[in-house]
């Protein structure tokens, strides 16, 4: 907006641009600068293509992230699971796989993946109840993780230490994917689906 024609005693509405400037500037700080300061990145040990693996395996997500016989869920597969297919020699050509073979398989060292959906110790989550019983798709909470060629950046909250996925990537309450995984979000979904439960169904 133009700024000419100002007078000392004249309360021109034109001066309100300063208000707008302050508003826009600081709203921008709130929206964009805050996450940049509040969240920090942690690198994954090496890159991983879910897409590539999905093409190789027979049973989709369940091939690696499966239910155990006792109904518990493996979550991130163990190195042993990887070794069911991978030997000490890389199967492909990617530099990531060389790191994997050399630093982990050869040394028999578990891979310290950063877990996007890691919850606090007091939370009990049953994949069996959601996947086996309620019939939810993996992607409905975890997003299109299975189709990605690269692991997305892992960010964690500097204050709380939790993965950014838990609070949600959007700062306004827009839901995923991946879905937000705070208690309110769990509760809302339960409410919407008519599931009424006691506290300790999700807390341990």
């Amino acid at each position: 907006m133009a700024t000419h024609g100002k007078k000392q005693d004249n309360r021109s509405p034109a001066d309100w641009w300063l208000f707008v400037l302050g508003f826009v500037l600081f709203a921008a700080v709130g929206f964009w600068a805050t996450p940049a300061i509040l969240y920090a990145e942690k690198p994954q040990p090496f890159q991983f293509s879910h897409k590539l693996h999905m093409e190789q395996v027979g049973e989709g997500c369940q091939s690696c992230h499966a239910f155990r016989e006792d109904g518990s869920y493996t979550g991130i597969p163990s190195l042993e699971k990887c070794k069911e297919c991978h030997g000490e020699e890389p199967m492909g050509e990617t530099p990531e796989e060389k790191v994997f073979s050399k630093d982990y398989v050869a040394k028999n060292k578990p891979i310290p993946w950063q877990v996007y959906s890691k919850q606090p110790p007091c939370v009990f989550f049953s994949h069996a109840a959601h996947v086996a019983n309620a019939g939810l798709e993996c992607a409905s909470c975890h997003g299109d993780h299975g189709d990605t060629e690269k692991l997305r950046t892992y960010e964690y909250n500097r204050l709380t230490g939790y993965s950014r996925d838990i609070w949600g990537w959007s700062l306004i309450p827009l839901d995923g994917p991946p879905k937000r995984m705070k208690m309110d979000d769990c509760a809302k979904c339960h409410r919407d689906n008519g599931v009424r439960d006691a506290c300790f169904v999700c807390h341990k």
Binding site: L18, G22, L25, F26, V29, G30, F31, T34, L159, W167
Partner: peptide, 23 residues
């Protein structure tokens, strides 16, 4: 004017509730 705009702008962003929740 600028300061009030800034305060209103900051409050229009989710910064404050977000920080309070994180704390």
């Amino acid at each position: 004017k600028f300061a009030v705009g800034a305060v209103v702008g900051l409050n229009a962003s989710p910064l404050v509730p977000k920080l309070m929740d994180d704390v």
